[in-house]
Simulated assay, not measured.
Amino acid sequence: MKKRILIAGCGRIGQRLGKALAQQGHSVFGLRRTAAALPKNIQLIQADLLQPDSLRMVVPEQIDQIFYILTPSDYTDAGYAAAYVEGLANLLNLMQIRNTRLPRVIFVSSTSVYGQSAGEWVTENSPTQPERFSGQRLLQAEQLANDYTGEFISIRFSGIYGPGRERLIEKVKAGATCQATPPLYTNRIHETDCVGILMHIGNLAHPEDCYLASDHDPATQCEVMQWLAQTLGAPAPTPVSGAQSGRRCDSSRLQRSGYQWVYPDFRCGYERLINGDCALDERY
């Protein structure tokens, strides 16, 4: 069934998602605060999520699905509160006061909502006790689902990498340290899988209310950086000591839902970035 889909925060991931959805025949609207050009198959809607009046004037009626994929204008508590809490609340309120069939809302959150730091495995059911403002505000945004009577699904992405997100590669090339004692666990997901997962969740008939989205290999920082150094022909990272061990993300629920990863581990994903010859092709 063809849908009318609104992507709120139509940046890099939103545009890739919008193009893929439009190619499937859906009507796609990209909401941005500025009049930046979007791909021709995404209709620009210029509005400020912090200005409810502007939303009412331009957001189309009869939206079937909303993807909320914002980036804060500044990385402060106030910036996160505005982008993720106030902006989302304004959009959800607009959907409800229109008194029409409520759209499915898919909210892009983060694994920063977890506070575990001793190497524990975390799932969607693990306690969420974030220590930093970023995770606190994202968790507050997720909790807006309690007042929304339509479908609301949170997707907690781990660290995103991919084209244009190659900071770790450059860091290893320049010579770097890695935390070996205690081992620091890291979690990541390729940008292509972010797009694929969003499309997958959008198409599920009966989704869960939350999904943890990370690849299959929550490897240690040293394991990842040592592999990168060897692949790049760069100096091996220098092992150092640290205070915490991070966490390990378990994406079993997403796997059980039927999603097939394009890049199931860091080796395949980073090999594609370095050499362009990964055996798995990008789908989106």
Rank of each mutant, 00 (worst) to 15 (best):
L70M: 13
L55W: 10
D77I: 07
Q65G: 01
F67M: 01
D77P: 04
R56D: 11
R32T: 14
D77G: 06
I69G: 11
Y68A: 00
Y68G: 00
E86A: 10
M57V: 13
V58L: 12
Y80M: 03
A83P: 01
Y68S: 00
P39Q: 07
T34Q: 14
E61P: 04
I69T: 15
D53S: 11
L49Y: 04
A35P: 04
T34N: 14
L38I: 08
A82S: 11
I66S: 00
S73G: 09
A37C: 05
L70N: 07
Q65M: 14
A83H: 03
R33N: 10
Q51T: 09
N41R: 06
Y75G: 01
D77H: 10
Q46T: 08
P39E: 11
P60Q: 03
A83S: 11
Q62L: 08
P60S: 01
E61Q: 14
Q62S: 13
P72A: 08
K40Y: 12
F67Q: 00
D53G: 10
A47M: 08
Y75I: 07
S54R: 05
S73A: 12
A37R: 13
A78T: 13
P52H: 06
T76V: 05
A83L: 02
I42A: 08
A81K: 13
T71K: 15
V59K: 01
L55R: 09
D77N: 12
A47S: 05
I42E: 11
Y80C: 08
V59S: 07
L49I: 09
V85K: 10
F67N: 00
P39V: 05
D77R: 13
A37D: 13
L31I: 09
V59F: 06
D77A: 14
Q62H: 15
A83R: 05
A83V: 01
Q65F: 02
Y75H: 14
M57F: 12
R56E: 12
A47E: 02
T71Y: 06
P60H: 01
P52E: 02
Q62M: 06
R32P: 05
L49E: 01
R33G: 04
A81C: 11
N41V: 09
L50D: 09
A36Y: 08
D48R: 02
P72Y: 09
G79C: 02
E86P: 01
L50M: 09
P39S: 06
Y80E: 08
A81V: 04
Y84M: 02
L55H: 09
T76H: 10
L38S: 03
P39M: 03
D53E: 14
P60C: 01
A83Y: 07
L50Q: 11
D74M: 01
K40S: 15
F67L: 00
L31G: 04
Y68I: 00
Y68P: 00
P52I: 02
R33S: 05
A78Y: 12
Q65A: 03
Y68W: 07
A83M: 04
T71A: 14
S73W: 06
